[in-house]
Amino acid sequence: MEGTVFRYGDNIDTDVIIPARYCTEYTADKLAPHALEDLDRTFVQRVKDGDIIVAGKNFGCGSSRENAPIAIKGAGVACVIAESFARIFYRNSINIGLPILECPEAVQGSMEGDRLHIDIKTGEIENLTQSGHWKAVAFPEGIQEIISLGGLAAYVRARLNPVK
């Protein structure tokens, strides 16, 4: 996949990713128009399908609201690259099928507006604007399995209805 970078700082919390005032909603179409609203008012107008959020450490800290990755994914973001993720956000993203990569070097080496090429399977990230090439931390095997099935819901569906 290839997309344009939206660059943010450390500790981007779920309260700015999707404020609680919108959390009486839980579908992508209702949440996406408010993604990152309290952090970057123009994000939703500027973001295009396939774009990439690149952020510092502890991305997605704060509440357990799954509305946060749903809002980001719904806005068109294809991948989030961060130095590290808060653990519930990390789980939620895997579970709903929003690709995330932990790669501090790629974060250091990418700026707002850069074009990145990403291979989610291998974790390889290439900066096409500034020429840089990195490899993200690989997911543990069990998590790979959930991701390859398309998220936790698909995994549970497969377990509840095993192919006879």
Partner: peptide
């Protein structure tokens, strides 16, 4: 520990 809504649905089911 805190989890998300999909996690909760999976835990309900399994």
């Amino acid at each position: 520990t805190g989890v998300g809504s999909t996690d909760m649905a999976a835990a309900w089911a399994l």
